[in-house]
Amino acid sequence: MSAQEQISVTSRTSEQARGQDVARLKWRHFKGRILSALGWFSILFGLGMLVVLIFDVINRATGIFSGGTNWLTWDFFNNFDSRFANRAGAKAAIVGTLYTISLTILFSFPLGVAAAIYLEEYARDNWFSRIVEINISNLAAVPSIIYGLLGLQVFARWLFLGRSILTGALTLALLVMPIIIVASRESIRAVPSSLRQASYALGATRWQTVWNVVLPQSIGGILTGSILAVSRAIGETAPLITIGALTFVPFLPRNILDIFTVLPIQIFNWTSRPQDDFRSLAAAGILVLLAILLTINALAIYLRNRYQKRY
């Protein structure tokens, strides 16, 4: 007697029961289909929102779909902020963003990579490296506005730097350092230890090995991660508001101790004004901000592909 016959003899006798089994199996497979459809729905819901957002911003900023006013003109880049929407521009904000972000990179990139090198290449498993490690993962989850409170207290008050570009850049540098450290560590860890051993065998010191072998091999990943960290810094608003960056700055900063504004704060300011024209200006600002971020992310992807190595 075959197994199938045995089953049909012992428990399933009627055709009806077999039909129920088939229906049940179909239902069990169908549940997978439902989940799959829900999965697509979730993803398309998110992406759909993204499309609506971008479409809406482009339309408001340029009037390209609805035939409205184009706010993204030369004046927008060349004028300072104003009480009148048709005269307002984002010059101070764009220049402020450039200054702040350049300084942020200057502080956070060397320090972040150095910390990563220490943790990967130098640190022994002692209390110091363990504390640093736990600390970094904790810092990455601290809300950005808390960094603003830190910057306000430590840089603006205790170090007397005031509401300056320098205060803003230092605050943002602390904010993005954990991101740079984590990305750099990952990239450094991916360098095979055979390369290090080869370098040591040639008589190189630890630092010579790091500088001539490990860093050139991992620079692609380090740069990619750092660029993503910088794009995070470019979009940050809350910590800079907290340290007292101004919302209305009708002049260019003269030096790094000058007061300033940045593009996201300018966008926030325009969004908060009740007149509709300022909302359109905000959309123009958002478009510029998103274009900058897109360029930077494309650069990161390019670097990742260019330096991608397999061992």
Partner: peptide
């Protein structure tokens, strides 16, 4: 990309 959009843009949206 959704995660990379600045929060001020989401606020505007």
């Amino acid at each position: 990309i959704l995660a990379g959009i600045p929060t001020v843009v989401y606020g505007y949206f």
